[in-house]
Computed example of a mutant assay.
Amino acid sequence: MADGNGGVLASISEAGVSLWLDDLSRQRFNDGSLDELIARNEVVGVTTNPSIFDAAISNGAVYNGALVAANTADPEQAAFAVMVEDVAKACDVFAPVFEASDGRDGRVSIEVSPLLAHDTAATASQAVELWKRVNKPNAMIKIPATKAGLPAITATIARGISVNVTLIFSLERYREVIDAYMAGLELAIADNKDLSQIRSVASFFVSRVDTEVDRRLAEIGDDAAAALRSKAGLANARLAYEEFEKSIATERWQVLEAAGANVQRPLWASTGVKDPRLPGYLYVAGLVAPSVVNTVPEKTLLVTRDEGVFEGDTIHGTYGDSAQVFADVEKAGVDFEDVTRVLESEGVDKFIASWKSLLATVEKALAQ
């Protein structure tokens, strides 16, 4: 549902939300679809993950030459070679956005191997390696917010490397991510790093929360449980934004900001609607506030553009109601702490499965 200011997407952007496309492939370079989205000011960044690259490499022969050119029989080395090449090229495509936004947007993420999710030292080491290989100032290294990932995030930020922290489901873990970011900045100051060049986003997952909570509510099966369906995802993200606001009001943050630090922006991930009964734009229009990023699959971007309703800031003023949602969810019999434990564990497992699928796809292509 368009408005007089250039449409729903433009209004969302003007309200302080950066829309980053959750998709990247060589085909997008070849067919001009990425350039078109940028030219229309509909996306100002892009994120990737193993599933995205697996799908891209599986769909046709566009990567065959690049895999051969990697000059290795090792599927992981070949996979990283093509991912680094694509991410570096996307960084160049987004360079004008990066420069125009003074580094805020125009960002492209590349993920460390999910196999390292529980290995702090290996994650930190690979983060440095990938940063050097991409060699673009608007790159971001994606690190999961596992317990082992937290000190790796601190170490990577301390090296002056921009980080996209992924797989955050709980407010408790989000607070730990914020602490890890600030700790990294404090180490960077001690090492005379230029804090103004370090950027980070904290990827808070949305739709997966609804999927798991709604499954448990359906098992409970009473009217009170049914009334809570599809409310937890938005409520959890909105309370995360409250945590973000609290963090940047602290004296600790004020000291870092005075030294040139940039805020770690909340990023809404998993924003494609899983329940067909919900509007496809729910997790975009429902999470509008200043200084956030929303990573959107193209399908979600288009349905928001064509059918979405812009209601202004949909986060401020919701904290009390959002907290009540969780009080009601717990009262109904859903252990939300267990929900987030399950989601993190499953999230890591799904990323590992996607990574292994990607390696199998690459291995098959190399054998041809």
Score class of each variant (00 low, 15 high):
Glu14Tyr: 06
Glu14Arg: 14
Glu14Ser: 11
Glu14Cys: 00
Glu14His: 14
Glu14Trp: 02
Ala15Met: 05
Ala15Pro: 07
Gly16Ser: 09
Gly16His: 11
Val17Lys: 02
Leu19Met: 07
Leu19Phe: 10
Leu21Lys: 03
Leu21Pro: 02
Leu21Gly: 03
Asp22Ile: 12
Leu24His: 10
Ser25Ile: 01
Ser25His: 01
Arg26Pro: 00
Arg26Ile: 01
Gln27Trp: 06
Gln27Thr: 13
Arg28Asn: 08
Phe29Met: 08
Phe29Trp: 14
Phe29Val: 03
Asn30Arg: 08
Asp31Ser: 13
Asp31Lys: 12
Asp31Gln: 10
Gly32Trp: 14
Ser33His: 09
Leu34Lys: 08
Leu34Ala: 10
Asp35Arg: 12
Asp35Phe: 06
Glu36Gly: 11
Glu36His: 11
Glu36Arg: 12
Ile38Ser: 04
Ile38Glu: 03
Ala39Glu: 15
Ala39Trp: 12
Arg40Met: 12
Arg40Cys: 03
Arg40Pro: 00
Arg40Tyr: 05
Glu42Ser: 07
Glu42Pro: 07
Glu42Cys: 06
Val43His: 10
Val43Ser: 07
Val44Met: 06
Gly45Ala: 06
Val46Asp: 02
Val46Arg: 08
Val46Leu: 14
Thr47Lys: 04
Thr47His: 07
Thr47Asp: 09
Thr47Cys: 07
Thr47Ser: 08
Thr48Val: 10
Thr48Ile: 09
Thr48Asp: 08
Thr48Gly: 10
Asn49Asp: 08
Asn49Glu: 05
Pro50Gly: 13
Ser51Asp: 03
Ile52Cys: 04
Ile52Lys: 09
Ile52Gly: 03
Asp54Asn: 11
Asp54Gln: 15
Asp54Glu: 15
Ala56Tyr: 09
Ala56Lys: 04
Ser58Cys: 06
Ala61Tyr: 03
Ala61Asp: 14
Tyr63Asn: 09
Asn64Thr: 04
Ala66Ser: 13
Leu67Asp: 01
Leu67Ala: 00
Ala69Phe: 01
Ala70Lys: 02
Asn71Val: 00
Ala73Tyr: 06
Ala73Arg: 10
Ala73Ile: 04
Ala73Cys: 00
Asp74Cys: 01
Asp74Glu: 13
Pro75Phe: 03
Gln77Val: 15
Gln77Pro: 00
Gln77Trp: 00
Gln77His: 07
Ala78Val: 04
Ala78Asn: 02
Ala78Trp: 02
Val82Asp: 01
Val82Phe: 01
Val82Tyr: 00
Val82Arg: 00
